[in-house]
């Protein structure tokens, strides 16, 4: 949870941790590139075994009692990836053409070997249906493993999650 105090203190802390911020950004750019290029196995390998991948609907309502667009644990992430790899997941056959911008990266919190990060993401998708633009405020929990990171948790809050949205079958 983010309170006001955290918001006010995040920037000085991030500035002090400029090197860490650089590493985190490189990780987020890598993740974005793997998603844009449909590098499914490589993207799946970014997750920890206790991962949660969450795309809320209708604002951030409780995923344990209310419907979410995606609320995957690690095994469902694998099913999702495996379906994409069959070549018969029609909505991604042919695949969407994608380019996304990851920006406004902020380090929020560091507890032990875990860092909470926030970023804004803008995605341009071209598919058979046409061109679609997606905007999201993302929150990540990253676990440091040596010089590298894994994703423990990723929450993608689409800015229009309370409205009807088109099929979202690429990796968001």
């Amino acid at each position: 949870m983010t309170n006001r105090q955290e918001i006010l203190t995040a920037q000085p802390r991030a500035a002090r941790a400029g090197e860490l911020l650089g590493h985190v950004e490189q990780f987020l750019f890598l993740e974005a590139r793997l998603q844009d290029t449909h590098a499914y196995d490589e993207w799946e390998a970014l997750w920890t075994d206790d991962a949660i991948y969450w795309v809320p609907a209708n604002g951030a309502t409780d995923p344990e009692t209310r419907m979410s667009i995606i609320y995957d644990n690690r095994s469902r992430i694998r099913v999702r990836i495996n379906q994409l790899k069959t070549g018969r997941h029609h909505t991604q056959t042919p695949r969407s053409e994608l380019a996304r911008i990851v920006s406004n990266v902020e380090l929020l919190n560091r507890v032990g070997d875990e860092i909470d990060v926030r970023a804004n993401v803008f995605i341009f998708e071209d598919s058979l249906r046409g061109e679609t633009m997606w905007a999201a405020r993302n929150e990540y929990r990253l676990r440091m493993q040596g010089d590298d990171f894994k994703m423990v948790r990723k929450k993608v809050s689409l800015v229009n999650s309370h409205k009807p949205i088109f099929t979202l079958s690429f990796l968001v």
Binding site: I69, D72, H89
Partner: peptide, 16 residues
């Protein structure tokens, strides 16, 4: 949640 809606494993293909 796994099967329906915009990112559902079933309904994304139906909708396609």
């Amino acid at each position: 949640m796994g099967s329906v809606g915009p990112a559902g494993l079933l309904l994304a293909d139906d909708t396609e």
